[in-house]
C-alpha cells in the first residue's frame, strides 16, 4: 500500500463518521470540502447518497458511516465531504465520502493496525488513546 507517511507512520485525514473515527490515508484524499449537496438516484444502495457536482464533474457521494457500519452518532454542525480516490491505482476514480466532521491530520503508526482486513477498513489503531478505523479506499469499488 502506498502511503503518505511520516517518520514510521501513515498520515491520514481523521474524520468522524457516526460514532466511529475513521482515518483516510492522505494519499487517497483529494480534497475536503463542506458537505456537498447530492441528488439521489432511484434504486440506489443505501450507502449511495447520490450524485454531487465537484469541479464540474459528477461525483458519487457515499455515506461513510454506513460504509464502515458505524452506529449513528450525534448530529454534526459541520459535516464534510471527503473527495477521495477510490479503486485500484490504475482505475481510481473520485468519490465523495460524506462524514460528520473533519477532525485533523494524524499519523497512524505503521504496524499498529490491528484486525487487518482486505475490505474498506484495513485495520484499527489507537490515536490519542481512542480507536480509529483506518480505511483503504482501493477496495471501495470492489464488489
Amino acid at each position: 500500500m502506498t502511503t503518505a507517511s511520516g517518520e514510521g507512520g501513515i498520515r491520514c485525514l481523521l474524520v468522524r463518521a457516526g460514532e466511529y473515527r475513521c482515518a483516510v490515508p492522505l494519499n487517497q484524499v483529494r480534497r475536503v470540502v463542506a458537505s456537498l449537496a447530492t441528488h439521489p438516484l432511484p434504486n440506489a444502495a443505501p450507502e449511495l447518497l447520490g450524485l454531487a457536482e465537484f469541479g464540474g464533474e459528477p461525483l458519487p457521494v457515499l455515506e461513510l458511516a454506513r460504509l464502515v457500519g458505524a452506529p449513528e452518532g450525534a448530529a454534526s454542525p459541520h459535516p464534510v465531504t471527503v473527495v477521495a480516490w477510490a479503486g485500484p491505482p490504475r482505475e481510481r476514480e473520485l468519490v465523495g465520502l460524506a462524514a460528520d466532521q473533519a477532525l485533523s491530520i494524524v499519523e497512524v503508526p505503521v504496524g499498529s493496525l490491528a484486525g487487518g482486513q482486505a475490505g474498506l477498513v484495513s485495520g484499527e489503531a489507537l490515536v490519542d488513546g481512542a480507536p480509529v478505523r483506518v480505511l483503504n479506499l482501493e477496495h471501495l469499488g470492489a464488489a
Binding site: H39, L41, P42, N43, A44, A45, E47, L48, L51, A52, E53, G56, E57, P58, L59, P60, L62, A86, G87, E91, E93, V95, L140, G141, A142, A143
Partner: peptide
C-alpha cells in the same frame, strides 16, 4: 465509474454536469 456501478447497478450512458446540475 466502478464505484457508482457497484452502488447503483443501473444502466446509463453516462453522467454530465449541465448548467450546474448533475445529469444522468
Amino acid at each position: 465509474g466502478r464505484v457508482l456501478r457497484r452502488f447503483w447497478p443501473v444502466h446509463a450512458r453516462g453522467l454530465a454536469v449541465v448548467g450546474g446540475r448533475v445529469v444522468v
